[in-house]
Write a protein that binds this DNA or RNA. Structure first.
Lengths: 154, 154
DNA sequence: GTCCGTGCAAATCTTTTGCAAGGTT
DNA sequence: AACCTTGCAAAAGATTTGCACGGAC
C-alpha cells in the first residue's frame, strides 16, 4: 500500500539508503499519519507480516530524524514518538491527551519568539521544542458547566 | 545552609509533608538554582553527608512537580531535570547546551500563542511544554565549529 | 497499635550496543 | 575481497515497585 508521502520520504533520502527494511518502515510510518513509537511501528509491521528487527526500526527512525524528515515528541513516560514531517517544513503539534490524535498548528508566533529570545540573550544556535496537549472537541464530555478554557502549563 | 527559596518551598507544602528527608531534598534543590536530575541531587546530598535513599529523592521530586513547585525539562537522553519554580509562577528556560546553565526567559508571547491555539482549535485544558537550548555567549568562543546564528528547530 | 514514610533490592521498559551472519558491489 | 546492513541477544540506564522495617502519633 503506497501513500504519496512515503514516496516523498524515500526520494528525500540518499540513493544508497534504500533497502527493503528501511523502505518498509517508511511506508508503514507514512500510513500512520500520526505519532507512533518505535515499538508500535514494529508491532504494526509484524501484524502486516513485514518482518524487520526492532533494532532496525529504531535505527531508521533516528536516521529520519537526523535527515529532518520526521518530527519527534516525547510522551509522558519519555517514550519517543515519531511522525512524518509535512513536506513544507517542520511543525509543532497539538495532541489530544485522550485520543492521542495530533494536528499541526500554526506556529509562526513561536518561531518568531524563539528568534527574538536568541537575539536578546546572545545565545547562538538556539533550538526550540514546543509541545501542546489538550482535550479535543470530540473527546470532551459534552462540555458541562465547568469549561476550563484557555491554557495552562505542564 | 538555608536559602530563602527553600523555606518558601517548605511553606508551600502541607504540614504533614515535612519530614527530615523531604526537607533535606528541598534545601539541596534550592541551593542548586538550576536544573538537576534526581541522580545528581542524590549524589550532591551524599557528598554533603546527607544520607537519603535515591527512591526518596525521586518521590520528592515527583511530589514537588505535582504541587507545582518545580519546573521540569527532559534532557537529550530523556532524563528528567528539575528546578525550583520561581515564586511568581511557572517559567520557561533557555539552556546552554555546552555548560548546561539555564536562565528563565520572557515567555508571554508563547503563553498568549498557546491560548490562541486553544481557542482556535476548540481544545480544552491546553497545556504546553516549551524548551529552548542554545550556546551561551560565555561558551561560544570555546566551542569550535559553525557559529550558526538565529534559531532552528529540534 | 496503627499509619505512613523510608530505603534496599528487584523489576520494568525503552533505547543502545556488541557482534556474527548475509548481501551487494 | 571490502563494505554495509541486519537482527538477535545482552547491556545500559533511568525510574518505579514490592516489601519489610522503624518512627510518629
Amino acid at each position: 500500500m503506497s501513500c504519496g508521502r512515503a514516496e516523498e520520504l524515500v526520494r528525500a533520502l540518499p540513493d544508497r539508503w534504500r533497502t527493503r527494511q528501511r523502505i518498509a518502515v517508511l511506508h508503514v510510518l507514512a500510513e500512520c499519519q500520526d505519532f507512533v513509537s518505535a515499538q508500535q511501528l514494529h508491532a504494526l509491521m509484524g501484524a502486516d507480516g513485514i518482518r524487520v528487527g526492532l533494532t532496525t526500526v529504531y535505527r531508521v527512525l533516528r536516521e529520519l530524524e537526523a535527515y529532518g524528515q520526521a518530527d519527534v515528541v516525547r510522551d509522558g513516560t519519555g517514550e519517543r514518538l515519531y511522525r512524518p514531517r509535512p513536506a513544507d517544513g517542520h511543525r509543532h503539534y497539538l495532541i489530544c491527551r485522550s485520543c492521542s490524535r495530533s494536528r499541526p498548528v500554526d506556529s509562526e508566533a513561536v518561531e518568531a519568539w524563539a528568534g527574538q529570545v536568541a537575539e536578546a540573550t546572545g545565545f547562538a544556535a538556539v533550538e526550540h521544542t514546543v509541545e501542546l496537549t489538550g482535550i479535543c472537541a470530540g473527546c470532551r464530555p459534552a462540555t458541562p458547566g465547568g469549561h476550563e478554557e484557555g491554557s495552562s502549563c505542564r
